[in-house]
Amino acid sequence: MSNRITVGLDGSGAGSAAADWAANEAELRGAALQLVHVDDWAQYGPFAAPLPEPRRQWAEDLLSLTRDRLLREHGTLDITTHGTRAVAASEVLAASAADADLLVLGSRGLGTVAGFIVGSTSSATIPETDAPVVLVRSADGEDRPPGHADRAAPVVLGLHLRSNCDRLLAFACEEADRRSCPLVVVHGWSLPPVFSYAPALDPGVEKEMADGLEATLRELLGPWERKYPQLAVEARIVIGQAAIQILDAAAGAALVVVGRRIRRPAVGARIGPVTHAVMHHATSPVAVVAHD
């Protein structure tokens, strides 16, 4: 990796919030920051007409003014800019993130009940890159950056115990360690349909299964707790839909971490339903980490 964070700018409040979050993250990591703006040809129709001069100037100003603002607030950061025009913005953003440690994108808010629209560019970019992607929304859905997270706010990790969890655990532990905040690991589960009536017939069945899952989770966490002995880790095995349990734990979190399994299908890539739900409804920044 290049010890660089890349952030996509589009001129929206969410894009500004993403830039602020990325700058804070770059300071935590001691990393460089790259600001990227892509004018998507698709919005101008099927013909590659020259970019209108006012819009070209607007794009240049967006990058330079954002860089100047961030340098005033983070004077020690190494900040570069890159503006281009392409058929698909997602391809340029994914290429920019290919050797970056992190790609940060904005998401427009719709309020705490409806969640927020991730947007076509973000949705298309996530499956195209194996780099972790962080989605940031503006505070209260307004065109203004979010306030800094409470130092006591945890990093929340949603974990599927049957997946390869190493990349997720490494990312979440490192983020919590940088912030000196707790790590909350959540696994939501439901009884298989074959056991639908088992708790009524034998109340011990549900507890026995929950105890087994907790033992599995503790076994997974053991090496990471030894690697980060100073990190406060809370493991939660909760019955119910996984996305709902993660969202419940994520209220007020510094960062929510979920996984996306790397697939190379012949027709399109997809994001799993739990990750998709968390992306669209969490109000905290959401990191989507690709894993095998």
Rank of each mutant, 00 (worst) to 15 (best):
E60Y: 01
V186A: 04
A149M: 13
R4H: 04
S180L: 14
H148K: 11
D202I: 06
R226K: 13
L220Y: 12
S196E: 15
N164K: 10
P285C: 03
Q43P: 00
H291V: 04
A287S: 07
V267K: 03
Q245A: 01
S120I: 03
V156A: 08
K227A: 15
V194I: 15
L28Y: 02
E91I: 05
A235V: 01
P154E: 07
G147N: 03
V38Q: 10
L65G: 05
H160R: 14
A139G: 05
N164H: 15
I246V: 15
T275Y: 00
L157C: 09
D292G: 04
I262K: 04
E214F: 01
R137V: 08
F47E: 14
E142D: 12
A282W: 06
V238L: 14
A266H: 07
Q241F: 05
A269P: 01
A176H: 02
V238R: 07
W189M: 12
G222S: 11
L93S: 08
V205N: 05
D143Q: 14
A42W: 12
V205E: 01
P265R: 12
V36N: 03
A98Q: 15
V184T: 13
R108Q: 13
E142K: 09
L157A: 00
L220I: 09
P285R: 10
T112E: 15
S96H: 11
V92L: 11
P54W: 07
R226W: 00
A18C: 03
R137M: 10
H276E: 05
D143P: 14
I79R: 03
R144N: 10
A89L: 10
S96L: 06
L105S: 03
Y44I: 01
G222N: 12
A200G: 13
V286L: 01
S2N: 10
P54F: 05
L71T: 08
H280M: 07
S90L: 00
P46V: 13
G8Q: 01
S190V: 06
A269G: 15
Y44W: 15
L71Y: 03
A200E: 15
P265K: 04
D292F: 00
R29S: 02
R69N: 04
A290L: 03
D39W: 13
T121L: 08
G11Q: 08
L183Q: 06
L33F: 02
A97R: 02
G106F: 04
G188W: 04
F47I: 14
A94F: 09
E27P: 00
A59V: 06
A124Q: 15
V257R: 04
L51I: 02
A86S: 11
C181H: 12
D61W: 01
L201D: 11
R226Q: 14
Q34I: 04
G158H: 03
A97T: 08
P199T: 14
G115M: 10
V194Q: 13
H37D: 13
L169V: 07
